[in-house]
Amino acid sequence: MGSYVIRQACLAVGVLLTAIIILFCLIYLVPGDPATVALGPRASAEQKDVFRQAMGLDQPIPVQAVRFLGNLLKGDLGTDLLTRQPVLTLVASALPRTVTLALVGLGWALIVGIPLGCLSALRPNSGIDRLIGVFSTSVIALPSFLLAIYALILFAVVLRWLPAMGAGEPGDIPDQITHLILPAFAVGLGWVGYIARLVRASLLETLQENHIRTYRAFGVSDMRITLRFALPIAMIPVVAVIGVGLGSLLSGAVLVEVVFSRPGLGSLALQAVTSRNSPVLVGTVLVTTLLYVVANFATDLLAAFLDPRIRKEG
């Protein structure tokens, strides 16, 4: 198990490095002079030169790249062009909110989706299976930001059950929780259907396997066979698919943040784009990438935990 963890960790670092290099290249490929963007169109040529020297933009590109990487390793993501705050501070305050939203959204989707999938697989093609099937397909088809807008209108504006905007008062946990309910609902609902479908298909396939017949031949009840002996196997591909889908989960969370005006990576990125605040944008993209890599690493570990055969291979 130990060697497997180390190998996956090295792989994750490699992916992250590649992502950083691509990101750096993209910054240079984007048209527009950073000095003009930062100082405005009316800045003089001398002012721009001073700015370039101060920012190190007059250096050759490889030198800049190494410096960029060095600064990253030191935890320096640059400074916000508008507020002059370190980007790291901005991102560090936004990151936990986005992660919380994504995790709570995925969490409730798993809690509801897995039992729905099991229910479907236990009675395939029954009325309840069809009902779950129709529900799943419907919610998968709904984009999360659209859902967020309708949920906002219904529960926050019309019914006034839940707050419409923000993330709640800092330090006031119950307030933060009530602010989390609607966004997490919007982020997770599509995933409920997705997970229910995945679990159903995977479980039905697993239940056909020979070792399941062995347990039946020993008189173990269908319920126990399904939950104890088939579900852990059925979850292996489901975990893999969720790992790949984490990217869309994060982007869903980012969109929902914008709808609910929640501070987080989404709002931060949106502000950065609209105000051409490139250090902040680079910082958010970088942290999102990091988040994605870490999440994939976590799903790899989870898959290895579920399947002893993965631990052994290679």
Partner: peptide, 14 residues
């Protein structure tokens, strides 16, 4: 009790 045909698939792999 029964012993199945294929020992490679008769036991739960995980």
């Amino acid at each position: 009790a029964t012993v199945s045909q294929d020992p490679f698939t008769a036991l739960n792999p995980v």
